[in-house]
């Protein structure tokens, strides 16, 4: 069975086409679904095997990144989202999509799933939007199907509000114990960036614990600030002219993992 992926679009989401392409390259069948068409029932999200919320500037990131889009999902499609969690449908959020999932409360998430926001993503310490490539390391104890076999990634970040802040130290400890802080920024050699501003730009935004991505306790909901869909082709690597063309970009693995998981 070919995995069907719903890619949410509309209201300023802007990385939907390349995200759909990435899932297709990974062997899935992606469809872009305008949020309005999902809300008015023209398209049913339950009919898909995977739900993905791409990057962009939904509602201009006004008030706070992802806030207005997250609220619309919660108010208009809340029941559907909870059903998807019950059905164990894998859900992905990238950049703005990650911000949406965190602000919805689906990441890191509660058990059972609810719309309780426990962490946030806020202004980069630099106070700036930046587009730069980052080295990432997957947590050793992660059991998310999205990250199966993934150890290191080189991906671009493109955000102004990517600084991860957990609601409390205790929560962070628990997330770490569960392997939910599944992706972290690191130095090129894999080591941990320095603390504070000395860690910039390896940690591009000042995230607590250098956290770049989170997953739910069951690993099915996965979100990250960096853009795996911006590195599926070898020509997207900023050093391809120096190192030669590789077989594929680092990010493709994530999409293939998900497509194979549901397939």
């Amino acid at each position: 069975m070919t995995a069907r992926i719903a890619i949410l679009t509309g209201y300023g989401i802007n990385s939907d086409i390349e995200l759909a392409h990435s899932f297709n390259l990974a062997g899935g069948k992606a469809e872009r679904v305008h949020l309005h068409d999902a809300i008015d029932g023209r398209i049913r999200l339950e009919d898909f095997d995977i739900l993905a919320i791409p990057g962009g500037f939904s509602f201009g990131d006004h008030i706070a990144s992802g806030r207005v889009f997250a609220n619309r999902l919660r108010h208009k499609l809340g029941d559907t989202l909870l059903r998807l969690r019950e059905k164990k449908t894998p859900i992905l959020g990238i950049c703005n999509g990650f911000q949406v999932l965190v602000k919805l409360g689906l990441l890191p998430g509660t058990e059972p799933a609810s719309f309780t926001q426990t962490c946030t993503l806020t202004y980069n310490d630099s106070g700036r939007f930046e587009n730069r490539w980052c080295h990432l390391k997957a947590e050793g104890n992660v059991s998310s199907p999205w990250l199966r076999g993934v150890e290191a990634l080189y991906l671009p970040v493109r955000h102004g509000e990517g600084k991860f802040i957990p609601g409390s130290d205790a929560l962070l400890a628990e997330l770490e114990k569960n392997g939910q802080t599944c992706l972290r920024y690191c130095n090129e050699d894999g080591s941990e960036p320095a603390k504070g501003s000395a860690g910039f730009p390896a940690n591009p935004n000042g995230s607590t614990g250098h956290v770049a991505g989170l997953c739910s306790k069951d690993g099915l909901v996965f979100g990250l600030m960096p853009h795996p869909e911006a590195h599926v082709l070898p020509t997207q690597h900023p050093h391809w002219q120096r190192q030669g063309l590789k077989a594929e970009g680092d990010g493709l693995r994530i999409f293939r993992n998900a497509v194979q998981f549901v397939g």
Binding site: N14, S15, F129, R158, H227, E229, A230, T235
Partner: peptide
Amino acid sequence: RQYDHEVQGQSV
């Protein structure tokens, strides 16, 4: 660097 120069996934 403050411009998004990679959205749409086309950059070579």
